[in-house]
Design a protein around this nucleic acid. Structure first.
Lengths: 224, 224
DNA sequence: ATAGTATTGGACATAAATGTCTAGTGTTGA
DNA sequence: TCAACACTAGACATTTATGTCCAATACTAT
């Protein structure tokens, strides 16, 4: 049987960590975020991460108490980037509602300040963890409330503002999910369609009449 | 050392499978679907499933060649339920567009014929598997095309029909994700807001003017 | 230089997952 | 009745996680 012989950095295949090239806590977090985004939270595993960083697996435990500790830090990081960025843009001053909507849209579409894939990954994660779900719902409420009050500052009634806030917010989710690879310009051109596409400009002739009839039916209770 | 002594059903804690109470291939699929929905595809593991079914883990391999074999069958099942149901409703005859939209909405909201959680679970799954992603995108294209042609049958122009199809389709995703527990009636009341909310009825007074200005800016290239 | 602290590597223990093999049990039909 | 088939249980081998411990190494300030 082979004896236990610690080798310690005698393996030339591993990049030695000399000359200020050190792995930091943030490095672990970045790798964790990458893996969360590409493969989901289940795949955030310590051994693969240490492989990618070129260090030993057990070094991890210097920076984080447990795997769960890392996950908590990751969720925290998400809140302080994506949600904070979106709310800031929604609260930013704007002359017209068009300008305001564009600010929000530009924010969400700009990977520098808002990571859509990160958002999706956290949403996935939330389905598997009560704690994450609670954080996510709180964040979504905050975001939609910010967008709603943005519309209200531009003279939309409360219910209309809420509807538009939800539309704008959820539309980006769905739309970006399917077409993330579309270039920015192309996507920007769709904004007026989503925001203004229902102003009657493209409406079918019978639409308003249909709408009135439908509302009445809902009022009297006999939904078609 | 202990000898290898097969015991075979001598353990009274395990429910014996007698009297036509047998585990079928479909039983394994149902359990897999439940777990996929509640915990994600990563948690579809053979040992927990066999525990829940009250049989041995290795029985699994009678019905399925490998775990992957089960997953393939599961994805197939999804296509032949959810996507098929939605397309059928979109293609169903309707007198007015309101009626048509309601049929689609009722379909998606009715757990008997369309499982929203199943849809979400598959979407999650797609993020981790190229194969599943391909199937999902094909299904989404099929669904949206069906809804778009539904609008076109009711006299909407092509681009308008596509915009509305996307809105209707993605809105349900986002909206239902956040508010799945809201009662059906409550959600039905939101339909006209999403479908007709932008006809000018609730529009802010300056909206149409804003829209024209914005379109012109996009045309000339100087997006605000 | 060198002592002290920060960081890392590898052995070790343990748990959980997949998949294979085979002996055994229950059911069915000739 | 009893042979053939359908199905199941448990042993086994292998892989991949997590987490602990401690010796060894690198860095920093005196």
């Amino acid at each position: 049987m082979a004896q236990i012989v610690p080798l310690h950095r005698n393996d030339p295949s591993k990049t030695p960590l000399v000359g200020n090239i050190k792995v930091t806590r943030q490095d672990w977090l970045n790798v964790a975020k990458d893996i969360l985004i590409s493969d989901g939270i289940e795949q955030v595993k310590i051994l693969p991460m240490s492989d990618r960083l070129g260090v030993s697996r057990s070094s991890f435990y210097w920076y984080f108490k447990t795997r769960q500790d890392l996950l908590d830090a990751l969720l925290d990081h998400w809140q302080q980037t994506n949600t904070a960025a979106l709310v800031a843009k929604a609260n930013a001053p704007a002359k017209t509602i068009t300008e305001a909507v564009n600010q929000v849209f530009h924010c969400v579409v700009n990977p520098e300040i808002f990571s859509i894939p990160f958002d999706f990954a956290v949403r996935d994660w939330a389905r598997r963890s009560d704690k994450v779900r609670a954080v996510l719902h709180a964040s979504e409420d905050t975001r939609i409330a910010a967008i709603q009050s943005m519309f209200q500052r531009h003279d939309y009634a409360q219910i209309e503002a809420l509807t538009r806030a939800r539309t704008l917010y959820y539309m980006q989710n769905g739309y970006n999910d399917a077409d993330l690879q579309e270039p920015l310009e192309q996507r920007m051109k769709m904004v007026p369609h989503y925001l203004y596409g229902f102003t009657g400009r493209h409406a079918a002739p019978h639409e308003i009449e249909d709408f009135r009839a439908y509302c009445q039916a809902v009022q009297t209770g006999d939904t078609p």
